[in-house]
Design a protein around this nucleic acid. Sequence first.
DNA 1: CAGTAATTGTGTCTGCTGGACACAGTAAAG
DNA 2: CTTTACTGTGTCCAGCAGACACAATTACTG
Lengths: 234, 234
Amino acid sequence: MSDLLWGKPSLPSRGPKPAVTLAGIAEAGIRIADAEGLDAVSMQRIADELPVTKMALYRYVPGKTELIAVMSDLAMGDPPNRPDLPWREALHTWSMDLYDGFTRHPWLLLSTVGRRLLGPNELTWIERGLTALTGTGLTGGEQLDSILVVTSHVRNIAQQSTTFPGHTTGLTEEDMQESLTQILTTEAERFPHLATALRTTAGSENQGLEFGLQRILDGLELLISGRKAATSPH
Amino acid sequence: MSDLLWGKPSLPSRGPKPAVTLAGIAEAGIRIADAEGLDAVSMQRIADELPVTKMALYRYVPGKTELIAVMSDLAMGDPPNRPDLPWREALHTWSMDLYDGFTRHPWLLLSTVGRRLLGPNELTWIERGLTALTGTGLTGGEQLDSILVVTSHVRNIAQQSTTFPGHTTGLTEEDMQESLTQILTTEAERFPHLATALRTTAGSENQGLEFGLQRILDGLELLISGRKAATSPH
DNA sequence: CAGTAATTGTGTCTGCTGGACACAGTAAAG
DNA sequence: CTTTACTGTGTCCAGCAGACACAATTACTG
């Protein structure tokens, strides 16, 4: 099932030499997705970048779904190896690294939704996140839930602040702002709190990432310190 | 631009009576998306459910993108009106209501990603969330960031625990578990922390929602109480 | 060396999608 | 009764994922 994601490239066989490789196909797909968005990735489009035709790709990949999965795991890459840090700093830099990845490959936000098979790189990310939380006294389930919360936050912040090439109707941040302010003037009475909230907002870019992250880490710290206070004096 | 989402249905005109309505089209689309997933929603498929042909739909909607936007805002519905509660309880029930919405219409998780124009219902959700946070001493930006964190968490938990009809390759939770345990046996040395974390996990369903939510609310409470301690004695 | 089996790449075909466009029919206003 | 505005339909196109048959290439086997 997940041979594509985990299997080693088996070289020796009988027929003609393959003209391309699975990794090469995936890289071509990544290049297209980075430049033109995930919607621009089609079998034909990928084949155009390689010395093969569209149908030849199906010798390497059972379908587009699986190809996107391979692309995604490959683009995710290996998480940067950080030296030993206290759990809070470790999780913080881990989050920032994750955010960097999502900004480098915005389409990952679209291709990694819902239930799916996990590839080696994605599992390594999880492993590194868990590493940061070992020794905190949290149970395994709590550790998993913790990195899930952090991941969710990073994902959605990235989703909101990224410009998707192609995909969405070319909406700039200004378009949204303009539409919103126009609505708030014509329908002000329906959204009083939103109006005041926006009025008292310093439009500083991307502080949402740090804000939410600090809240989550604060919440985790509360739990962890309580957990330690309960176990260590006993 | 957002006339479709915000405009009133203008009745009187000259030509023949319209055979359908925008709301009717959107409801048909919602029905299909609920039952068969977002991918099953096509112009042809919607037209099959209505007494018109595919092309007639374009008299009511400029394109599929806008139709999905209308469907999304409609499916989101009005947030349940809760009596006045302390901010923490208010935000908690708000989150649960939001989660309910996402489980009722899982495709909303797919249709409401990225930059987009906000409809009246979506804005009302935001307004209600902000209402819970008024009087906490948080700035407008902090209030917005707060509900963003909560929303992100709810979204991603829903995303993970929901079975998408159609969309993904029919992967059950068992398939993922099986694939994961198989990987962890063959590649155990690469993911030690993950292995132990999964071993010490009580497989209780969906506690991730409550866990993360409580962490976030704890973090917010820490900020809010600090904010109040700084202002009230002064 | 000849023959067979395995494997790769290609071309053709189907059914689906979103959408452009011309055209016919309908209802109200002049 | 004509004009005008509007609705619904049929036809057409480009692009998509993928099924399938077939030719070409290579290695193993007798």
